[in-house]
Simulated assay, not measured.
Amino acid sequence: MLQIPRYRLLLIMVRMKLLAAVVLVAGLAGVAAWGGEAFAGDEHRGTCVFEKLTGQDYKFCRGDLEVFYPELGDVGCTYIPKCNQYRKRISKEWRSPKIAYPQADKNKKYVLIMVDPDAPNRANPKYRFWRHWIVIDIKGTDLRAGKLKGHVLTDYGRPTPPSQSGYHRYQFRLYEQPAHEAISLSPEEEASLGSWPMERFVEQFRLGSPVASTQFLTQHHSD
């Protein structure tokens, strides 16, 4: 039988321990990193996977608009996972997200619109668009710093998709605000959040096309 010298045996054991430590650290980093789209805490599989949007839903996301919720990070172009009660917390607990647009022009103002185009469901969106948030007069300097200061036309409304209505898109659209444009909602618009004529609003105040847009998808937390 081949005898391994004691010093070689000790060297092999040290190398094996070092390799095991490296593998462990790499594994933990993969679970904790947002870029890896995996978080510890899934009730069933030990990880919480953040699935990216695809197809036309993915194409809606453009311009690097960032939307941050607690514990989730930037949720742009993702499905909100059910693990850790994230869907329930985004609907019932968390307040308005932090919004940042690093490319904002420091000398311009912006308008942010958040809507749900899938009310009451995506197959039959007869209440499109459901208005969740409008902020105007946002300074580019604040937007670059992730500070959403401005005049609120519609208070933030949490995403609350009805039970058994499937996934809803929650869309964030950022527009450059025309100089000296007095933007407001009509009394009829203020009276109801649903069936809001967003396109008419955009055309009326000459907002043009969004300079950036993003969205996330979520469904009722019990589904």
Rank of each mutant, 00 (worst) to 15 (best):
Q171N: 07
W133K: 09
E181W: 02
G150V: 12
V115K: 01
P125H: 06
H151D: 13
R158E: 03
D142R: 03
V135A: 10
R158T: 10
E176S: 02
S186H: 01
Q164D: 14
P162R: 09
L174P: 01
Y101Q: 08
S165G: 03
Q177E: 14
Y175L: 00
D155V: 06
T160K: 15
K109W: 00
A182F: 07
I183C: 08
I113M: 11
S163K: 14
P161N: 04
D137R: 03
L185A: 11
N121C: 11
R173N: 05
A145S: 15
I134A: 01
L112H: 08
D105S: 14
Y101C: 03
I136H: 02
P162E: 10
Y127L: 14
P162S: 02
D137C: 11
N107H: 12
V111T: 09
P178S: 08
R122G: 04
S163W: 06
D142P: 15
N121F: 05
N124D: 12
I134T: 07
R169D: 05
G157Q: 09
M114E: 15
H168Q: 00
S186Y: 11
G146C: 13
K149V: 02
Y170F: 14
Q171S: 00
V135C: 09
A119I: 01
Y156N: 02
P161C: 09
M114A: 15
R173D: 00
A104S: 05
L148D: 01
V115A: 04
L185G: 04
K109L: 08
I134D: 00
Q177A: 03
M114W: 01
S186P: 08
P159F: 13
K108V: 06
Y101T: 06
R158I: 09
F172N: 02
